[in-house]
């Protein structure tokens, strides 16, 4: 070949490499996470107890599945406002379905397995509704999932009459059993979280997710079935939200219509993704970032209660945290453009 076009950039120097590490969102988050743990422990050394780490892991597990759901959706260029209310409606419906089994003294493992499948199914229906509105009716994801959010939150109240559904103390005892600081419930959630990370970053499915969010037109032109992929992503997010509903059922021994709704779990999950370094315009996001973002949010909100900070301040601190993460990201983007 006689012609040659050079696409090489400048040399990657040691100095630049160091700067890359220091401005790397995951690295910064990791440092922040360690600093937070040390800070709370310095205020109350009981923070280092196995029991407290068990609490942290449990609360992390209640957030991480919907945060990863949100990661998939946001990386694909969308947003899902429905995850909180999907957890609520799945929890109350499944709680109602499995209560007869509880009353008849059926083995708890069977009860919880049936409940889990039921929650996944209801979550898939909710995700399917969002997907239908987006792909068939061309609604923007924000509006489509707002519809699903409203429908889910409303149905959860209608079905539960506003009262807790089901009464299953056995589930609570099971939720607390495990080895050391890791309960079985947490272990299952963490395994699922790792699988989601592997799929996102190492498989063709994950690659398509990034490609669609980065440039939907290019993805379509490259022969990727964009519509089918987007449907699957919203259904996946719904299933993960449903499983989160089951998680809270197991933890509390009952389903509540307010679960994930009154605390705006959808926004907390989105915050975890944004803190993790994802871009709301799509195409950018890391599993490790979301995991660390969710961990930081969990440690902050639990730690502030732990050191007895008035509840009114906790939201303010979380807000400040999101602002810092966003600023860091914009700084990083600017510095990359300069180099």
């Amino acid at each position: 070949m006689s012609t040659s076009v050079d696409v090489s950039g400048s040399e990657v120097t040691t100095d630049r490499r160091l700067r890359r590490v220091v401005t790397n969102q995951q690295f910064v988050l990791f440092v922040v996470l360690i600093a937070l743990i040390l800070f709370f422990a310095s205020r109350n050394s009981l923070f280092f107890r196995v029991g407290e780490f068990s609490n942290l892991f449990t609360d992390f597990s209640g957030l991480v599945l919907i945060a990863l759901a949100e990661t998939y959706v946001i990386v694909a260029g969308g947003i899902d406002l429905a995850v909180g209310s999907t957890a609520a409606v799945s929890g109350v419906v499944a709680a109602g379905w499995i209560q007869p089994l509880v009353n008849h003294g059926v083995n708890q493992a069977v009860v919880l397995l049936v409940g889990t499948l039921a929650c996944a199914f209801i979550g898939a229906l909710a995700g399917g509704l969002s997907a239908l509105l987006i792909t068939a009716f061309d609604l923007v994801p924000f509006v489509a999932t707002l519809v699903t959010y409203s429908v889910g939150a409303g149905l959860a109240l209608v079905i539960s009459h506003g009262a807790p559904v089901g009464y299953n103390p056995g589930a609570i005892y099971w939720s607390a059993s495990g080895i050391g600081m890791i309960t079985w419930l947490v272990a299952i959630v963490l395994v699922l979280a790792v699988v989601l990370g592997v799929v996102l970053h190492l498989t063709v499915y994950g690659r398509y997710n990034f490609a669609i969010g980065s440039n939907e037109f290019a993805a379509r032109a490259a022969g990727i079935a964009v519509r089918r992929h987007l449907i699957s992503v919203y259904v996946l997010a719904g299933v993960l939200a449903g499983l989160t509903g089951m998680f809270f059922y197991i933890r509390s021994g009952s389903g509540a219509a307010t679960t994930g709704v009154t605390n705006s779990a959808n926004l907390v999950a989105i915050a975890a993704v944004v803190i993790g370094g994802a871009s709301l315009t799509g195409g950018v996001g890391r599993w490790a970032g979301t995991m660390l973002g969710a961990a930081v949010l969990t440690v902050v909100s639990d730690g502030l209660i732990f050191i007895n900070v008035p509840p009114t301040w906790i939201q303010v601190v979380v807000g400040a945290l999101i602002a810092v993460a966003a600023l860091l990201q914009s700084f990083r983007r600017r510095s990359r453009r300069v180099t």
């Binding site: 063709v204 990034f210 290019a218 490259a222 022969g223």
Partner: peptide, 25 residues
């Protein structure tokens, strides 16, 4: 086909773009 200004996914690596839709497994 190379479409005007939109043939590539900017957030993916060069290698991933070359293989977009034809990923090597």
């Amino acid at each position: 086909t190379l479409y005007q200004d939109s043939g590539l996914a900017p957030d993916l690596s060069i290698g991933s773009n070359i293989f977009l839709g034809r990923e090597k497994r």
